[in-house]
Design a protein around this nucleic acid. Structure first.
Lengths: 153, 153
DNA sequence: ATGGACAATGAATAATCTTGCAAATCGCTC
DNA sequence: GAGCGATTTGCAAGATTATTCATTGTCCAT
């Protein structure tokens, strides 16, 4: 498994799926999925992905934080590979799922992009509702978003 | 300075006021304010306060996280009787009203339930927008929610 | 293909955080 | 005030994470 972006996507999935308390543990899980990297690399990955080690009731786990988001306003091309999970839609509505905490910044970036097909957005914690001007426009938007979500946009 | 609670209050103020990247740094700052404790104690304090060490653009800082809050995820059957107020909807959209503050946790529980008819949810303070895949699906969801909303769901 | 700039990685090591344990302190009751 | 259980803390060892340095791999432009 070559790609760093793919590995980080795998990391994100693992992290969100269950509590992971150390980089060693994460390393073992990744190994099971076919990635063989050292703890050093994971340290760098986690930092790059802004994953924090947060104390919980019983132990500690890596997780995304809202604090990490509220820093800068990167463009969509930077946000999407990091947060994108899936898009779906009906008629003029498009629903975009992101990693936890990703909805707010991504929605803001979509607003800034000022795509003509997009009428507006509403963002929750990890879901964005994109209201489009037409069903056709919605499909176009979905394709665009999927593309942006792929590794290295 | 005797009290642990007071110390933790001071810690929170410092943490919120500026980026603090290590427990040693925090220790020094506290010392300047009259608190003299060891790093061990701070480790325990931070854990107790659920303060996470989150990576930022340039370094790392302690901060409160939303992830720390969303630890226990009660199931829908427990949440609905407590928060449900009413459901309504048009075409593929379903609007669920809850008691104040109930929207966020309830929406999360709906997400976790992964109902096939539900495409996604967006929660505000006391209102949830549920986007369904079809109008028929929406009606099914509404019935299901009403049922769950009855006492002892 | 070859050379060079630059990103990615591992191994070793440094920096930082966590924890077991014993001592000190606190809160109560007598 | 003395006694006693529970809480808090420091110390030092243990565990985890970050970083340095060297190496490898990639992507062009020749």
């Amino acid at each position: 498994m070559p790609n760093k972006t793919d590995r980080q996507r795998a990391i994100r999935e693992l992290i969100e799926a269950r509590p992971i308390g150390s980089q060693e543990e994460l390393r073992r899980l990744l190994f099971g999925r076919g990635w063989d990297v050292t703890q050093s690399t994971l340290s760098r990955d986690l930092r790059e992905m802004r994953l924090a080690r947060v104390p919980t009731g019983d132990g500690v786990r890596y997780a995304f934080t809202s604090a990490a988001m509220a820093e800068d306003r990167p463009r969509l091309e930077e946000l999407m590979p990091r947060f994108f999970q899936q898009v779906d839609g009906v008629s003029e509505l498009c629903v975009l799922h992101t990693a936890a905490g990703g909805a707010q910044p991504v929605a803001e970036a979509i607003d800034l992009a000022q795509w003509p097909e997009v009428m507006g957005t509403i963002a929750g914690e990890n879901t964005i509702l994109i209201i489009c001007r037409s069903a056709a426009g919605r499909e176009k938007i979905q394709r665009k978003l999927r593309l942006l979500g792929r590794a290295d946009g």
